[in-house]
């Protein structure tokens, strides 16, 4: 079947099997491998992308269900070589170690800050509670998101 969607502002149109999951569509058909494929059971959250600005686990969403919608992947955070404050924050505050959970963490953080520019630590921790970091880096991830909240406005899509 034909699916059509905007990914990071670019129109994408592909013929796929109806059973294709959004995570595989993004990685294998579109070739954007920044979105990671982890547990496959909607637990770990590394596959999170934004659908119309809202974080969604792409391993538990069909590409067909995303057809007609605006998708933001981690590649969409940086615009014209300018990093999103969230990306800067993760660099400044050591928000990643192995980097596997990072794309999902950063997109959830971006969606949170779009809705709530000054979240408390509790709100940040709640927002990322559907995502797992196995380097046990939650403290630095929280600090990275706080850094982003304090510095600058986003340049990216997903608003």
């Amino acid at each position: 079947m034909q699916v059509n969607m905007n990914i990071n502002g670019e129109a994408v149109s592909e013929d796929v099997e109806a059973r294709t999951l959004l995570v595989h569509f993004i990685r294998d058909d579109v070739g954007l491998t920044g979105t990671h494929w982890g547990c496959d059971t909607s637990n770990c959250g590394t596959c999170v992308v934004l659908i119309d600005g809202e974080p969604v686990k792409s391993c538990t969403t069909l590409a067909a269900m995303a057809s007609g919608h605006d998708i933001t992947t981690v590649e969409g955070l940086e615009v014209d070589n300018v990093l999103d404050p969230v990306q800067e924050g993760f660099m400044q505050c050591h928000g990643l170690q192995c980097g596997f959970c990072t794309p999902g963490m950063m997109l959830t953080a971006r969606a949170l800050l779009n809705n709530n520019p000054n979240p408390s630590e509790e709100v940040i921790r709640e927002a990322i509670s559907g995502q797992i970091c196995r380097c046990t880096g939650y403290s630095t991830i929280v600090r990275s998101i706080q850094w982003a909240a304090e510095h600058g406005t986003p340049v990216s899509v997903g608003n």
Binding site: E54, P55, V56, K57, T60, E126, Q131
Partner: peptide, 9 residues
């Protein structure tokens, strides 16, 4: 119920 990302769907 589940987590905030799952609750979005």
């Amino acid at each position: 119920i589940a987590d905030p990302v799952v609750r979005n769907r």
